[in-house]
Design a protein around this nucleic acid. Sequence first.
DNA 1: GAGTTTGAAACT
DNA 2: CAGTTTCAAACTC
Length: 811
Amino acid sequence: MDVVSPELNSLLPDEIMDTEAIEDVPHSQPDAATVESEPSDDTSVPMETDTPVASENLSLCSDAAATEPTQVLTTSVAPDSTLSISSGSQIPVSISSSSSPLLTLKPALATSTATTKTTDSVTGTVSTSGLQKLTAPFTISPANHQIILNKVASSQATEAAKSAGTPPQVIKQEGQKLLVTAIGKSGQPIVLQLPHTGSKPGISQASGDTKAQAPQFKVVTIGGRSELKPVVGSASNQVTTLQAQQLKAVQITKKTPTSSAAPIKFIITKTVNSKGLSPQTSVPPVIAGRVLTQNSPVMPPRTITLSEPHNTTIQSIPGKKIAISPLKSPSKVTVVSVASPTSNTSQKSVALPVNVALGQQILTVQQSTSASPVKVATNQTAAQNIKPVQSVAVGGVGGSQFKTIIPLATQPNVQQIQVPGSRFHYVRLVTATTASSTGQPSGPSTSSIQTAKPMVVSAGAVRMSVPIVPAQTMKQVAPKPLTSAAQVVTTTQTQQRLIMPATPLPQIQPNFTNLPPGTVLAPAPGGGNVGYAVVPAQYVTQLQQSPFVTLASSSGFPAPAGIQTQARLPLNGLSTAETTSRPRKPCNCTKSQCLKLYCDCFANGEFCNNCNCNNCFNNLEHETERLKAIKTCLDRNPEAFKPKIGKGKEGESDRRHSKGCNCKRSGCLKNYCECYEAKIMCSSICKCIGCKNFEESPERKTLMHLADAAEVRVQQQTAAKTKLSSQISDLLMRTTPVISSGGGRLPYTFVTKEVLEATCECLLEQAKKAEQTHQPQAEAERMILEEFGHCLMRIISSAGKAKADCASINC
DNA sequence: GAGTTTGAAACT
DNA sequence: CAGTTTCAAACTC
């Protein structure tokens, strides 16, 4: 779907063009031709919050205090149009913020015209302040799912938008509008437009009511086939002019037509609009919604236009566009935050690059495998005006990553970090420190800005760890058909790697191309305006006590198991249980501040935790320094954070060191050698001297045998002990009544045949160990006796404990 | 636990 | 790119 004309596309900054498809939704003027089932204005049944929701429900809810300005957006969708990810299934999508009631999009049965009537379509309450939780319960089809959350901060333009070419407006953070769009049946793109009611002068509009009115709109296309011609973006119709409108368009195409397994992209857009929501206004800002149906006979793409009328002002939409990299992953969740221009700012049609300096708020994580291209165009303004946004990407296909977003104490702004050639999309969240300079601070909106909290992706207490599939290519690539379902959950090969701190260092944009997957967004406590930091996924476990941003499904809406259980997904090839249970080896750095690759923690992309290091800077409190260090390392070696051990040449199944070792004295048979440490043999790329770490090496074989024997012994010993413990426990369970009734038994009472056998196994293992290590007889006896003592102690301890337990039970 | 050895990382 | 220095882990005693 080509929502964006080539010209507009060309205007997009290259940094953000790594998206497979970027759709530009220019002036929003839904063309009648594009909208098939577009009723007249009178008949339009817009999105009303009161409207009984059809099976599909998209709601953004916040717990925000009533005092804070909020918007509730409700969208009604034509009955035939389905807003469900999987066929027929309900897809409630709710974004709730704790601070304030949020936006709710309810697809209604009636189709709404694109008109900008205030009463039409979507009404929303947006609270700009307070921590916002975003709950996105949704049904994800097992296969390619994408969820995109867009948070757009828009302010009502106090004045009519100036003609195109005027300088871009400054975004004022006074309120937020949250638009949630989701779901199209397979092959049916859904476009959500939010035109502003206010008329825009100076905008040439070919036709349509909505043209003049919609200063701000959002277009979200979901599920549309890639090959389908985009409903929006055609020259004649639809939402077109960027100049007059604050535009955010997200288009997702779904190639797989029908099956539930078909890739589904779910887009949630949240717009922050503070101004329009003045408390005095009796009528809450209304967003007119329109459902547009494409001509496609079989899988008609649908366009839902949500127009948000601004009674007082017209929002000019600068040409700023944020292109979100194409979603290759079958499923993904992306949150995009865009600050809407303030009222006074002039409109600018020029597409502005999304970059850190501009303070754009885009958080996108995208997977490459899924075919459907996604384009997102958004308005963006100065960073200080941007509202915090958190995005979680759920990637499905292999190489997926876990990302966890942790809310910051202060509202962060999302900034997209461009990593040329990177498979990943990085987003930096920067806390907005100041209110919008240009915007007219309305009472409620202004206060809300200060109190605005980062939007939390889920309301539940569930810690979110979402696998993210890296975008494979930076260039626009024709979407590939999604293949299998349930990839989201299963195919994660995560590795803990650092990404980037949220420190506002526009100049620092390290090349993360080679960063391994597995990242976490975490708050940067000491980071001042640092909103979020990308931290190793493992570090999330360190922060379990802290409030996490969670992505949870509503109670009534069973989220995919993968999402809720992502924290348990494999990490670095190991299950979470393994990774968590096996503590990372603490570092002992003293001089490097743990900001050089000398530090294993840093090299592995981990924060130091429970280490013995001195003057450690590898933590959230030193995000700035850490970021610089990361950049330095990447500048020196772009692959610095890549795993050193990778696959060998094509056709080779053995792993091998990416650079090879340089050992000179160790013979590559000690852990000094990275190859040996990784339990791999040296290869031709190694520069080692006197290497003995090769296949036929007798020394190596000997070492390996010893190591294997030791490992076996350990395992056997562990098993024996486990068995002993279990048998003791079992015995205690059986003897409990005796104890309770008899008033106590001596420990030897518990030495049954089973216990005795287990004890003997332990002793035998100890004897074998002594024998294999060629211990003298005295030493062997000592080891055996020592083990025997341990066994006895365990028996006695268990017996005593059981006795105590029984006593307590009797009491 | 202190000291030594080692090789990767960092530096020149 | 090569040589040197720095650094922290691995190892030894």
